[in-house]
Amino acid sequence: MEESIRNISLPMTKEVACGLKLGEMVTVSGLLFTGRSRFHIRAIENDLYPPIDYEKINCFFHVGPVMRQEADGEWKVVSCEPTSSIRFERYGADVVRKFHLHTLIGKTTMGPATAQALKEVGGVYLSKIGLSGNALKGQVKKVHEVHFLEELGKTECTWIYEVDHFGPFFVAMDAYGNNYFEDLAKEAQSRMPEIEKSLGIPPGYDYTEVNA
């Protein structure tokens, strides 16, 4: 079953990104960089970011991995579970534009501003499938570099991974501004009146308001 999932070479081209459908499952192979809150804040507020070639290493993996340094000095991934990307929404769009990112990988989804930026550059957001940190770590073939380790620590710093058939993930935001979870949320919202009724909540019920 796994074999039928499409594998995409990194860096992902705009053309490939634009061909991906919402909800499609994919794996990726090639180079990616990691980061989370501190990467976003520093890149935008302080113009401070790892000196890497963002054209070649263009996939931003939202993660704070558990890393261990072996006796020979080499770094090994103990576990790498994608982290919640929605937290970075304040800076997401600016980061996508600044580094011209065609691939984001994370947990959950991102908001409308990032969707707009992805549409402009021709990029997609890939969301994790289940908890998969242990499978993912086996798909990291090599840890190439690490940036800002001293300053930010192992969780927040930027690692460069070489990955092979990394995933699977699913396309949660396509290159046209659509979001997989938005439709779903609308469906859930539309069920609320019925659910409230079944719980005995009167129609139009509201909490007591004590402020002007």
């Binding site: 499952m25 103990v78 289940g130 908890l131 940190g133 499978a135 770590k137």
Partner: peptide, 25 residues
């Protein structure tokens, strides 16, 4: 289905290889 299958397999892997059930402890 896939979300659950993957997550249960992840837990198996961690029990066997001393990995983590989830990396965010």
């Amino acid at each position: 289905v896939k979300h659950l299958e993957v997550s249960l397999r992840n837990a198996d892997l961690s029990e066997k290889g001393n990995g983590l059930v989830c990396a965010d402890t």
